[in-house]
Amino acid sequence: MTATTDRAPAPGPRAALRPPLAVAWLHARYQFVETLRVPIAVLGNMLFPGLALLFFVIPQRAVADDPVAATAAVGQLAVFAVLSACLFTHGAGVAEDRALPFDGYLRTLPARPGPRLAGRVLNGLAWAYLSLIPLALIGWLLTAATLTWTQALGAVVMVVAVAVPFTLLGLTIGYSMTTKAALAVTQVTVFPLGFAGGLFLPPQMFPGWLDALSRLLPSRAARDLVVQVTTGADAPAMAVPVLLAWTVAFGALAVWAVRRDEGRRFH
């Protein structure tokens, strides 16, 4: 069949790709709406840290009425909120999306994978911030926790610093496992990381061996840095290198997982 037809559309210049930022924003928006439409998932994530504060910290007036201790308690639960938002959105969420035929369809649209991934990360970040709202409100109204404007700004910036490593860990889980496995692994990662990282009980209450182990965890490093930014209490010198090292390690794992997934499904 070589007969060409003359009624093909007038050949014009090829349409350009949409700008990467526009595509990232587009994906962030629609993923946000999708998540929003399943309120149970949203509420669980958003309310748990606030409820933990309400039930475990508020009754202990010695902590709740002490500005430094209360601020630290809110700070470490805030780290937990970000940790769990990032791991659930990316760990369980990515694995679910990968299982959908729609994912294959999206790959045929004229857009690079980078902006789509960026949209996903933006969405995770948005939920991390939202999950802090109930926590911040309860902390402000019912405890002696206080922040200066500078500290508050520092806390907002710290959310990103904390979200990056856990987003990368979430992507690693989401891209390397099936939906069921990813959900289970996310759950068994979130709670031990939270507990051993001193996000529920302050690390001052840990026995020596647990404290030593805890200092090597990303959740503990994130907690110490957040407490430093919000209360002025110095974090151990190891906190920054530990958090950076985990960020690099999770980054490498995430790249490996994404590439392996592409190789399996799309080559």
């Binding site: 629609y30 999708e34 959908l100 045929t108």
Partner: peptide, 29 residues
């Protein structure tokens, strides 16, 4: 692929999005 149109296999559409939103989402590319 800017001149290519394909279709999702089976009935794999994002269930929580409205028809309007799915069309706009794809159009955004």
């Amino acid at each position: 692929r800017t001149w290519l149109g394909t279709t999702p296999q089976e009935t794999g559409l994002p269930e929580t999005l409205k028809v309007r939103e799915v069309v706009d989402f794809v159009a955004g590319h």
